[in-house]
Amino acid sequence: MGILENRFQDNVVVASMDKLLGWARSTSPWFFQFGLACCAIEMMATAASRYDLMRIGMIPRSSPRQADVMIVAGTVTMKMSLRVKKLYEQMADPKYVIAMGSCATSGGPYWQHGYHVLKGVDLVVPVDVYIPGCPPRPEALIEGLLKLQEKIQADRPLTKKIA
């Protein structure tokens, strides 16, 4: 930390504001539970005591306004896609989306003949992390969430972006 090093007592930590914000954000991304199909069962299992998502600071929220991450867990139908979009727009910035399972990433088993299924939730909202699987195991979901935390941590919200 250059000139700031060793200038204060031991109980003072010195860091850049940018980094601190990234760290704070990444360690408590509350997720908006979006159980649409069988993936929701795995998501619930992940949040329950055996896999315990609280370890990495994540709690399920039922309102888009309290959530930072939207886990789209399941098949998104055409009818639902409009609602997904609306709910995404209701979330406060910064917001992230995880596409969990084959259906949310690409339409999954409904790719060929599902007339009413959205072929991937990325057609409607921007997706940060895709998790393959049908449905993915809780370990896979946790891996995806850790990847997302890395991504959030790498964000530098105060730094001016060079276009």
Binding site: M78, K79, S81, Y115, H116, L118, L123, V124
Partner: peptide, 27 residues
């Protein structure tokens, strides 16, 4: 089950999937 503005009757044999729904492309 389908949205109110859905076009066509899905389980008829001559049903054709629509090309886009509210601007969302149906691939």
């Amino acid at each position: 089950l389908c949205p109110e503005d859905w076009a066509g009757w899905p389980l008829r044999k001559d049903y054709e999937t629509q090309e886009s729904y509210h601007g969302i492309v149906v691939q």
